[in-house]
């Protein structure tokens, strides 16, 4: 990999940021992979698996860079398979259970809308490695958003049954969206160094995209009430342990196993 020095920013903050990007993609990718073979139609099954694979690919880039930056010889695989729940930095939204197909799509849409804004902002990161990953990932995520947005509109503005399911999904997931826009000390460090956007700065655009889409889907945007948070600093819901148990089983049971 490149030997350019990492910019003069608190290294712990940068590591934290890279883990957050990587872990969001990893955990959501894993959740989507749970649908493989179970989606309501073959075409949707393939589309979800494709999205999952895109996200796992992005994970390799973010966690790879995190490991390189840390300088302790940890690879993307080490970080993905050998950390415990409290060391993961993904937002709570992506670890929410799949629920029905509508809920999975709503979670995807709410995340995609944030993800695309985030990656677009990161394309002008002061660190070229971050900008390069964002450039590549943004193209994939633009398609993810295209698709999830389209399906949210179709199902929201569909039958009485699909509308009800989408409304329930939206109300259930909404309290988990706030965490995407709450910055902390690490975020401030990064924003000050020009490496990434302040999370709060992405809210207006997200509100716009989400608001427009929900209107078209005939769904009522919930009020911003109490917002759940904790994932970004390693405080997860009870679901996280189960995800890791499945995802990490092989490497935990047979350390170093390869094929």
């Amino acid at each position: 990999m490149s030997s350019a020095p990492f910019p003069t920013v608190d290294q712990a903050a940068l590591f934290e940021f890279l883990l957050r990007m990587g872990d969001n993609a990893l955990i959501l990718g894993h959740r989507l992979s749970e649908w493989c073979g179970h989606a309501p139609a073959l075409e949707e099954d393939i589309a979800l698996a494709n999205t999952a694979l895109d996200l796992i690919g992005q994970t390799q880039l973010w966690l790879g860079l995190a490991g390189e930056m840390e300088g302790k010889g940890r690879t993307a695989d080490n970080l993905a398979y050998l950390r415990d729940a409290t060391e993961f930095r993904n937002v709570l939204l992506v670890e929410r259970p799949n629920g029905d197909f509508g809920k999975t799509l709503m979670r995807q849409f709410l995340f995609d809308a944030w993800h695309l804004s985030m990656l677009q902002a990161l394309r002008s990161s002061a660190d070229k490695r971050i900008a390069d990953i964002a450039e590549k990932a943004a193209k994939e995520v633009a398609y993810h958003l295209d698709r999830s947005r389209d399906l949210v509109i179709r199902l929201g503005d569909g039958t009485a049954e699909s509308h009800r399911r989408m409304r329930e999904a939206l109300d259930d997931l909404w309290p988990y969206t706030g965490e995407l826009f709450i910055g902390d000390a690490a975020d401030e460090e990064l924003a000050a160094a020009g490496l990434g956007p302040a999370p709060e700065s992405l809210k207006a655009e997200w509100d716009g995209v989400v608001g427009e889409t929900l209107t078209e889907a005939t769904l009522k945007k919930p009020a911003d009430g109490y917002m759940q948070r904790g994932g970004k600093r390693g405080v997860h819901t009870e679901h996280m342990g189960f995800i890791l148990a499945e995802m990490q089983f092989l490497q935990r049971a047979y350390p170093g196993a390869t094929w």
Partner: peptide, 17 residues
């Protein structure tokens, strides 16, 4: 070939499949 409810989604599905 593939199944889709309308042309727009058929294009999406074709892209993925």
């Amino acid at each position: 070939s593939l199944h889709a409810p309308d042309a727009e989604m058929a294009i999406h599905n074709a892209r993925d499949v």
